[in-house]
Write a protein that binds this DNA or RNA. Structure first.
Lengths: 200, 200
DNA sequence: GTCTATACCTGGATAGAC
DNA sequence: GTCTATCCAGGTATAGAC
């Protein structure tokens, strides 16, 4: 990795953190440059503008999320279905603790989307594939025989997705809830509506 | 209502809409003043600073929300419990359609809270009473005999609250889902875990 | 590839007239 | 109560040296 590439990554990583902490507007390029250890105009060598830096960070997040959202069906069986679904939520809860910046940044893009068609389009895409993957998981559960085949399976999946997603938002506020218990309830409520639930 | 009071309200109402549409930072006092039909310095006659205007709007929202969150228990009976719970969600879904600004503004205060202790304190308060009221409703349901008394009642209530809350966020993005169906699933999943469910 | 210097603008805020 | 005029800080962005 050349020197150029190094500075490039450093700008992105530092900007990511500062944007999350102070917001896009309250983070000036001068602040970022100082933190990186270069001068303000040097940033313009790597990015055409502040907006482009913001957009670049979004693109990276976008790719990352679309990658993460893909579920590995091979791992799922009727025996471990519920357990794997639980794990999915637990993992996200732990991830939030590790990278508290993600949600803060992401929420800002949601706000930007209100007045920028590009962000809006991409965010709707993300949301859609997010919801779709939950529907797909539950449908697979039906196939495995863990869940009953009801016409409400889509609504059930979306409900689950809403809980999954909002846990992140609530953690952001610093509200200390038993998120694992909440997720467990959500999973239970979807699966227990299913058939032949093993007695605990 | 005097002339003074009139201009005062007009500033607030216009600022509310513009803040929601463009964000706090991208809405300058000059823009607000033009829209109101006065000059920029005239705003300073009513508000000490832009931040104070933003804070004032939050205070009004704060009071309004705390008022709305209070549930009327007298209306609830074992016969109409589920129905009333459903209505609660439906009402919120319709409200969102009517005032699309609310969620956009509110999300901005959530972001501000990350770097302002006052906002943070008040938002946690709101969130707490929001969650508490859902717990209270379900506990009342237990009392009415509509719900089974499990130790998980708190987690169930919080799950329900997360769905309720996140429906608003998803509507914001413009994602067209069957939100009523999702809410119905959530309510069903909480109540059907209860006892003596009437056959459909 | 990164710097210094600087142009240029916008936005918040104040002074003081009416 | 509202205006005109003005100040000033801080922002993005560019020119040009090294």
């Amino acid at each position: 990795m050349g020197n150029k590439e190094q500075t490039f990554r450093k700008i992105i990583e530092i900007a990511y953190v500062m944007f999350a902490e102070n917001g896009f507007e309250k983070t000036s390029l001068a602040m970022i440059a100082t933190e990186v250890g270069i001068s303000k105009p040097a940033i313009y060598y790597y990015f055409q503008s502040k907006d482009q830096l913001i957009a670049f960070i979004f693109d990276e997040l976008y790719k990352e999320i679309q990658h993460d959202v893909a579920v590995d069906y091979k791992e799922l069986s009727s025996a471990n279905f519920k357990e794997e679904l639980l794990k999915l939520g637990y993992k996200s809860i732990e991830a939030q603790d590790k990278d508290p910046y993600f949600n803060k940044i992401f929420n800002q893009y949601v706000l930007l989307a209100a007045r920028d068609e590009n962000y809006k389009r991409q965010l709707v895409e993300l949301e859609t594939s997010f919801l779709t993957s939950f529907v797909a998981i539950l449908r697979y559960g039906v196939q495995l025989g863990v869940l009953e085949d009801t016409p409400h399976i889509e609504a059930k999946a979306q409900m689950l997705a809403l809980v999954y997603d909002n846990i992140g938002n609530f953690m952001l506020t610093g509200n200390q809830l038993n998120y694992r218990a909440i997720w467990k309830e959500a999973v239970n409520s979807v699966i227990q509506g299913g058939k032949n639930d093993k007695k605990k």
